[in-house]
Design a protein around this nucleic acid. Structure first.
Lengths: 182, 182
DNA sequence: CGACTATACGGAGACTGTCTCCGCTTTTGC
DNA sequence: GCAAAAGCGGAGACAGTCTCCGTATAGTCG
């Protein structure tokens, strides 16, 4: 990749991070291009679709989410606490940009989405937590990690799309109660 | 209201029902106007926003959802079965048009939304089911109906936005396990 | 029935956002 | 330096939203 291309790529990405935070993931792509000081053509060459751009921004998240999962496991807390911690961290990350949570929830079951791979990484992180607790015998029989992932993404989506600053804890409590052993 | 206005209003509504079913709730409003045989101005006079149009279509649903709740209560089934039935029916209704579930989830906590009232009716229906089971002592202590509603809407949103035809049952099972008494 | 008025219609067009195409510029390798 | 390759950017086609206002029509009253 040519040096100027690399520069523009990075500039677009850092601008997108700002604009998506300000206006959510539905912000105008032309505006991002303008504020990054490049033409729309340049933006679309680097990121053919909005999803591709969101996907590129997600790289940071997936790393952090993965780390959070391992950190949660390392705490060695009881199942309830560990899950609550993990779920809350996960939601915090995927709602960083308004509208991102629903895109992630949709991409999770869509292998054609550019975000699919990243979703897999996050799903893996979740699986590690679930498997760990399963091994400790603290979960109900036949808890499906993928399913849990979908459910928690749903909670994130609701919280994200609500105009009020919704507390996710009560919803997560229900989910946690639904998967830990009695 | 003038007779021709009434005619157009109804025509727009029935056309919207078709187009929203075909293309989801993001379909072009001008297309709905065109297919209804009216000018865009006429559509926007009757329904100033997309939400207002979706809201008008929702009238049928709220009635049916309300009836479903009462029907579920009348079955007198055990808590798990009753809740599963009710949740599945509810989701079936609010995912009638692609994109509707997320709009409803968002409107649920937004008194400014034109759909807010309808959401209240559905939330009331849910509250009746929960309260009934609570009275029978089959639920965990302090189950919040509003919270349950949000959670189930989240499940609906995930199912609706997934490109695959996702089965909601496993997710609902977790929710049900999370609210019924051990 | 004909005239009058309030009501409603509809479509042109302003505006915004998406996305492409292609003539021009910059970088890179030699 | 020079040529080729790589990349730029902005004009503009296209689609959707929404408004404004000249025109048409339903309802009303003498």
């Amino acid at each position: 990749m040519r040096a100027d291309a690399r520069r523009n790529y990075d500039k677009i990405l850092s601008t997108a991070r700002i604009v998506f935070t300000e206006r959510g993931t539905d912000a105008s792509l032309d505006e991002i291009a303008r504020r990054a000081g490049v033409g729309p053509g340049t933006l679309y060459r680097h990121f053919p679709t909005r999803e591709a751009l969101v996907d590129a921004l997600m790289q940071d998240w997936t790393d952090r989410v993965s780390a959070d999962a391992d950190a949660a496991i390392a705490t060695d807390l009881p199942a309830r606490e560990m899950l609550s911690d993990w779920f809350e961290h996960f939601i915090e990350h995927i709602t960083l940009h308004r509208g991102a949570a629903s895109k992630i929830a949709a991409a999770m079951d869509d292998p054609a989405s550019p975000m699919y791979r990243k979703c897999q990484v996050m799903a893996d992180a979740n699986r590690r937590v679930i498997d760990h607790l399963e091994a400790r015998g603290e979960l109900r029989p036949s808890v499906d990690p993928v399913n849990v992932m979908r459910l928690v993404s749903g909670v994130a989506t609701v919280a994200d799309s609500s105009c009020t600053d919704l507390d996710v804890t009560p919803m997560l409590d229900v989910v946690v109660d639904g998967i830990v052993a009695d």
